[in-house]
Write a protein that binds this DNA or RNA. Structure first.
Length: 331
DNA sequence: TTTAATGGCGCG
DNA sequence: AAAGCGCGCCATTAAA
């Protein structure tokens, strides 16, 4: 048995099935079935039923007070989990189209949580990398593996990417080891090396944990708090969960604060200028707009400007802009 | 028929 | 003993 679920039964999740697929033919078939069944039940069967008969569109609902980090949550239908990672899934995203005469514009913040980690920690190396508009995973790989940036190979960059994301989530050496399929001691060495190269991040992580334990909450850059009642609790598993949440919440939460400020700025500008462009969706670090052809150039330019300068952090904010006849093309 | 728990998986 | 944050929704199962 590879792994158990929280209730103690054998897990059959994707990770387990991928492993079993090395030895048996069935798991691969089951994975393919699961993938297709997911797309059919959640998206292709469901979304057409949710088209509003008056407007001919699907309309999501956004909740302000659900996610503890301050993110919005989308439901009925959830438009924040429309597939994008596989070719089959992307075909569902292609169904989100602009009306005749308009285009879909997508604007997403680049590496927003890592930039916030740089800002909150004040780490000089990380700040410098973003100031110089570097590929952050490549820069991290160069530091951790001790090579020049243009000597970083694809595996080293992949490792660095997993480390960077892991840091944001409060991942342990155990988690990093299983993610990279390496020894735990090797994973610990990478983490030690990372913190040696980015001491400001190390210091930030330590003080965030300490603050959570002494005050019982952590804050975003704008001062919004997440209370962590279990941070000093007796239940070890829950306490460790609270510690990871304490690490993650300031970064995820500050990102949520920033994009909400951006949404207000964008909508205010559209109204002030009496434009026909519509802000139609938010997906955590991305805004999606429906833009008439004649407003395209103006909106794309101003959108980037508003999003980049919604707050002045110690790092530049960068925005990726895409445009297309449908949501998939806009990426 | 509804509600709740569970396992699983789509997204950032 | 677990081990990576935040969501919503699906099918299944059991119970109300």
């Amino acid at each position: 048995m590879k792994k158990k679920t929280p209730s103690g039964t054998p897990s059959t999740d994707e990770e387990v099935l991928q492993e079993l697929a090395l030895d048996y033919p069935l798991p691969k078939i089951l994975l393919e079935y699961r993938g297709m069944a997911k797309l059919k039940s959640t998206y292709t069967d469901k979304l057409p039923q949710m088209v509003n008969s008056r407007t001919g569109r699907v309309h999501t609902s956004y909740s302000q007070g659900v996610a503890v980090t301050g993110r919005l949550a989308s439901s009925d239908p959830n438009l924040q989990n429309i597939p994008i990672r596989t070719p089959e899934g992307r075909r569902i995203r292609e169904a989100f189209i602009a009306p005749f005469g308009s285009r879909i514009v997508s604007a997403d913040y680049s590496q927003i949580e890592l930039r916030i980690m740089a800002h909150l920690s004040g780490d000089e190396g990380l700040l410098r990398a973003f100031a110089n508009h570097e590929d952050i995973h490549r820069a991290t790989a160069a530091e951790v593996f001790g090579v020049a940036r243009d000597a970083v190979n694809s595996e080293q960059r992949r490792y660095a990417k997993v480390i960077n994301f892991g840091l944001i989530y409060g991942m342990s050496a155990f988690g990093l080891a299983s993610q990279l399929n390496i020894e735990r001691s090797a994973a610990q060495q990478y983490i030690d090396l990372y913190f040696a190269r980015y001491p400001g991040v190390k210091n930030y992580m330590d003080s965030t944990r300490a603050q959570a334990k002494s005050q019982g909450y952590v804050e975003t850059w704008f001062g919004r708090r997440l209370w962590l009642p279990e941070i000093n609790g007796a239940n070890g598993m829950r306490r460790q969960g609270a510690e990871r949440a304490a690490i993650n919440a300031p970064m995820q939460g500050t990102a949520a604060d920033l994009i909400k400020l951006a949404m207000v700025a964008v909508q205010n500008w559209l109204e002030r200028e009496q434009l026909q462009t519509l802000l139609i969706m938010q997906v955590h670090d991305e805004l999606v707009l429906e833009v008439p052809q004649e407003e395209l150039a103006l909106v794309k330019e101003k959108l980037r400007d508003l999003m980049c300068h919604v707050a002045e952090l110690k790092v530049p904010l960068e925005v990726g802009l895409g445009e297309g006849g449908n949501w998939d093309e806009a990426h």
